[in-house]
Design a protein around this nucleic acid. Sequence first.
DNA 1: TCAATACTGAAGTGATTGCTTCACTATTGC
DNA 2: GCAATAGTGAAGCAATCACTTCAGTATTGA
Lengths: 111, 111
Amino acid sequence: MLHDPAQLDLMFQALADPARRQMVDRLSRGPASVSQLAEPLAMSLSAVVQHLNVLEASGLVRTEKLGRVRTCRIEPQALRAAEHWINERRLAWERRLDLLGDFLAETKDET
Amino acid sequence: MLHDPAQLDLMFQALADPARRQMVDRLSRGPASVSQLAEPLAMSLSAVVQHLNVLEASGLVRTEKLGRVRTCRIEPQALRAAEHWINERRLAWERRLDLLGDFLAETKDET
DNA sequence: TCAATACTGAAGTGATTGCTTCACTATTGC
DNA sequence: GCAATAGTGAAGCAATCACTTCAGTATTGA
């Protein structure tokens, strides 16, 4: 479920917007209500709610409504999935470079 | 330079598209020409070149033209920067949870 | 009970994206 | 030299995006 390519798509798309990354950044320091999330952003509350819905659909953020206040928090598992995708590709490349290095060193020895 | 928020923006935006992620995935297994990159993708060569330009502008991919062939390769440093941004936020959240856990454990002892 | 608070939802708008096609240039193998 | 190869660039187009405003609904504190 976490490595579902469609979910990964939603996550990277969610992270692509600077306002949404700022919201994730804020939430990494602790839960927040929609208004608290909106406070540092120069846009309407409606716009913030729309961003929040994108984040929630991506799985990066979970929200819970108590009374009239919606409290938002980060879902670290989802962050980990995005992190993992990048990490795998970077490691694949670096392993390739290491193997190539070894190969070049060996063939150098043989000449 | 690598933690320049504008560059980070370009990187996450570049990773938001599935075709571009597929290209990064292909390049993680080794360098490729534009045509090789295009081969598994169901779109025109022109479209692939446009995606490639986005990837290059973001710093995730570096290209080099020799004769009529443009060879593309991954820039692991840029991947690391995106990875790092996510990792920092996730760790901040997890540290917070740990501290909260400690606090709750302590106050429980005191009652 | 009534006003303030905290959102929610729909409609509209202008900008950006992800393609397409077509015409073009530069390089290379024969 | 000339055809095939490899890529480039511009124009156009439909869909999606990131907002806006405005009108609405619960919830809550005094």
